[in-house]
Design a protein around this nucleic acid. Structure first.
Length: 832
RNA sequence: GCUCCAGUGGCGGAAUCGGUAGACGCGUUGGACUUAAAAUCCAAUCGGGGUUCACCCUCGGUGCCAGUUCAAGUCUGGCCUGGAGCACCA
């Protein structure tokens, strides 16, 4: 065996060997239980970054560990390869997006292989290939048939710099998630998926996901934003054109309905013109024009002082007959509830601010127990007893909510209402590099879905990327004109493509049956492999991708395509990779290139280090010293083995049998303890950082053991030594995949270590033969005694009481009681 | 404002059930080997105090204040700080 560790050499050798053998090919049929380990697939941007390395290493170690534990493991990879960067590269350098993407995929594939990842490349999925997007389009048609895909004119988020609309989920703080430019509102006719139909299910089924972190689940729950309340309809008493009209409002505080002193409609409210008197028309028009000009950010800022103008008309409160004025103000949002708000300044802080500014009346209807008389320097929003509310006076407001709404239901001017914040998912994109929406506009029949047998609707290649202000797809001469699948007459194709998040909402299902040319996937296969047992990826997808995928799964189940209703059973959201305390980014210039690490230290060092310092869910601070530390550790392991092998002290041939002759050797116990600890640490939340500290502890223990024996080893000692080293190498195999494989062969094995069964330990040996008994007096540690492992509780008590130290401390004192924690601790409680 | 997560040495972090706080590593310091360096190995490393000074004793210590308990980093209540998400959502 070589004396020195040459990672680059052995890594290249084994990567080639594994590839040649098809070592990571996963059969669909197997006697073993299935396990689906999945990383979020990458966008082929050009090069791997450290976030990728962390993500894929975590999943790879899980996959390899599960495989050694006897599972039939599916561990696939693919490419989320539609999207704007390819198109931007095309516009900038005149490159063909397809070619640009292919080149990036080729380079990144090479890098993934250099990292030693155990992917089944036969299942590789690339979303921009016609054989994939054909099925994305087919799924669109299924959703269309179900009424879950529809087109409507709506106020949508427009990113001018990307030249396309965005989904609500892609607007972060009023800015584009991709380019950070301020998003505008536009009225456009666009395609939507009806995710709102699933709002309740998406919310409720979060409870079915104990394997997801609370942070992600609450983020999704917040996003869905369920609230329970009531709709009340207020008749307009003085509509300018004499029409009978009413203004419906949504409220979560029906208990405060007797305190309404005015009503606010959003500037974009559909009936606003009909509700405005001639005298107020000009002022209202001005106000609305102003609101239109404001950006979303300005508009939604909570710090802004509230503004508004009266419409001049009035409504009647059917509960108490009071007449109150209508206003328009931009703190009412047209897209939430009914677009109109009943204002109760005494019990809502926003209404209070507004009423103060415009001197609108206030009326207390919930009594503040702290100051029962009128205290009007702030809105009282807590619980209390109703006053000034007719027959509801004296009722607790929590009860009044229901009672008051019930009255509105009984008398026909309201109902109970559950409201969600979630909006439908806008999937149209005015871009080229995406899956074309498979729909045509027929001169006679209107909107007609493309026939399934005509799929895929191919992306045209005769396009001009130098155009400005419109999608390159519109420059194609071959794409636009087509025939109607229904009547055969002239029709034009939909020019928009689908949001890339549509492609990524089902890719993990395709892995179950990636090469199927007749279906998106075979139902049996998808039901067999899914749901994903362990999904690993960044927290940035907590809402976007993870919510969309959950929606897709539920919708596809309702389409009869599969039988499960949640796609990802367990979710691990890995932390970011930092350098010097901040996120690695090109603009900050603090990136570390994985290629350099592979070259200088090897992939095993990179894998070991990226797992070593922090638990996977936490942020990880990259440090050059840490990398070197890991590299030194691998050298230390290598030296341990190579010295042993070269001195003829370690070999698989010395492993006489298990259990070993010298079971009671401390090293054998140490190895068993390590096996148990490492297995538990991986099984519990993938605590790889402690796994690696246990690798080090075991290595240190083996070194110590060998150092204590002078001269040659006996046959039995060689047995113990070989057992310890073999076990260490096997325990490390999921992480240091190449080094473990190389050592395994150097020890005399022909088969791959990755085909080995995971270590099994002897429960009796997986604990120390001696325990340290801690003796406390009044809860403070006063003494420690080494005792044999099997000592009874009574004996422990006697031992504790009989040490010199304890005798001294308890002399002349009354012992109130003695607590014995088996095999651990005795606490003596004394008085005086 | 609401929701979630976190707070432990110089640093990353460890500590199944409440039971020895600081595993393992990084860094630092000292030493061995060497002509020298690299590599490697050994030792020390929470703070205050004491001492008969390699050992040892003692007090304090896990963001803050209370509480429960024989015993609290861990449980309960109330704060403080940082991060993330949502946010004029009626």
């Amino acid at each position: 065996m070589k004396e020195a560790y040459f990672p680059q050499e052995i890594e290249k050798k084994w990567q080639a060997a594994w590839e040649e053998r098809g070592a990571f090919y996963t059969p669909d049929e197997s006697d073993k239980p299935k396990y689906f380990a999945l990383s979020m697939f990458p966008y082929p941007s050009g090069k791997l970054h450290m976030g990728h390395v962390r993500n894929y290493t975590i999943t790879d170690v899980i996959a390899r560990f599960k495989k050694m534990q006897g599972y039939n493991v599916l561990h696939p990879i693919g490419w989320d390869s539609f999207g704007l960067p390819a198109e931007n590269a095309a516009m900038k350098h005149g490159a063909d997006p397809a070619k640009w993407t292919d080149e990036n995929i080729a380079y990144m594939t090479k890098q993934l292989k250099m990292l030693g990842l155990s992917y089944d490349w036969q299942r590789e999925v690339t979303t921009c290939k016609p054989e994939y997007y054909k099925w994305t389009q087919w799924l669109f048609l299924q959703l269309y048939k179900k009424g879950l895909a529809y087109k409507k004119e709506a106020a949508v988020n427009w990113c001018d710099s990307c030249g396309t609309v965005l989904a609500n989920e892609q607007v972060i703080d009023g800015k584009c998630w991709r380019c950070d430019s301020v998003v505008e509102k536009k009225y456009l006719s666009q395609w939507f998926f009806k995710i709102t139909d699933y709002a309740e299910k998406l919310l409720k089924d979060l409870d079915k996901l104990p394997g997801w972190g609370d942070n992600v689940k609450t983020m999704q729950a917040n996003w869905i934003g369920k609230s329970e309340g009531a709709i009340f309809r207020f008749p307009v008493v003085d509509a300018p054109n004499g029409e009978t009209m009413e203004v419906p409002v949504y409220t979560t505080r029906p208990d405060t309905v007797h305190g309404i002193t005015y009503l606010v409609v959003a500037p974009e409210y559909k009936d606003i013109e009909k509700l405005t008197t001639a005298e107020n028309k000009q002022a209202v028009e001005n106000y609305r024009a102003n609101a239109r000009k404001m950006t979303e950010i300005e508009r939604l800022s909570t710090d802004r002082i509230k503004t508004g103008v009266p419409l001049g008309t009035h409504c009647k409160n059917p509960f108490n007959g009071e007449i109150f004025p209508l206003w328009t103000a931009d703190y009412a949002l047209v897209e939430y509830g009914t677009g109109a708000v009943m204002a109760v300044p005494t019990h809502d802080t926003r209404d209070f601010d507004f009423a103060k500014k415009y001197n609108l009346p206030m009326k207390v209807v919930i009594q503040n127990p702290e100051c029962p008389s009128d205290c009007s320097d702030a809105a009282y929003t807590e619980e209390g007893i109703l006053v000034n509310s007719n027959e509801f006076n004296g009722m607790k407001n929590t009860q009044a909510k229901k009672a008051i709404t019930q009255k509105a239901v009984d008398e026909g001017f309201g109902e109970f209402k559950t409201q969600y914040r979630l909006r439908d998912w806008l999937i149209s994109r005015q871009r080229y590099w995406g899956a074309p929406i498979p729909v045509v506009y027929c001169d006679k029949c209107g909107i007609v879905p493309e026939k399934e047998e005509n799929l895929p609707v191919m992306l045209p290649t005769d396009v001009d990327f130098s155009v400005v202000g419109k999608s390159p797809i519109t420059t194609s001469k071959t794409f636009k004109d087509t025939t109607c699948p229904h009547c055969g007459g002239h029709a034009t194709r939909e020019m928009d493509t689908m949001d890339t998040f549509v492609c990524s909402s089902w890719y993990y299902m395709r892995y179950a049956d990636a090469r199927n040319h007749n279906e998106c996937f075979n139902k049996d296969k998808v039901n067999r492999w899914l749901p994903v047992d362990q999904y690993v990826g960044g927290i940035e997808h907590a809402i976007l991708h993870l919510l969309y995928s959950r929606f897709f799964t539920k919708a596809l189940k309702d389409c009869g395509l599969l039988d499960f209703d949640e796609p990802f059973k367990n979710l691990l959201t890995q932390g970011m990779v930092l350098k010097d305390g901040s996120k690695m980014s090109k603009s900050k210039g603090n990136t570390v290139d994985p290629d350099e690490i592979f070259e200088n230290f090897g992939a095993d060092t990179a894998r070991l280090f990226i797992l070593s310092d922090s638990p996977p869910a936490r942020d990880f601070d990259w440090s050059d010293a840490g990398v070197e530390g890991c590299y030194k550790f691998l050298n230390r392991v290598w030296r341990l083995v190579s010295d042993g092998v070269n001195n003829n002290e370690i070999s698989k041939d010395y492993m006489i049998k298990f259990p070993l002759a010298r079971q009671n050797d401390d090293l054998v116990r140490t190895v068993n303890i390590a096996m148990k600890g490492i297995t538990n640490d991986i099984s519990n939340d993938f605590q790889f950082n402690t796994v690696i500290s246990k690798y080090r502890e075991l290595t240190n223990a083996i070194y110590d053991w060998r150092g204590k024996i002078k001269g040659e080893l006996t046959a039995e000692e060689k047995d113990v030594f070989s057992f310890a080293v073999l076990s260490l190498v096997k325990l490390m195999a999921p992480v240091t995949v190449h080094m473990s494989e190389e050592i395994w062969h150097d020890l005399g094995y022909d088969s791959s270590i990755h085909e080995e069964k995971w270590c099994e330990w002897d429960e009796n040996l997986a604990k120390a033969s001696k325990i340290t008994l801690v003796v406390q007096v009044n809860g403070k540690v006063k003494d420690k005694v080494e005792v044999d492992e099997g000592v009874s509780d009574d004996e422990l008590k006697q031992i504790a009481l009989s040490t010199d130290k304890i005798k001294e401390l308890t002399a002349g004192k009354e012992i109130v009681k003695t607590i014995v924690v088996p095999k651990k601790l005795v606490n003596i409680v004394i008085k005086g």
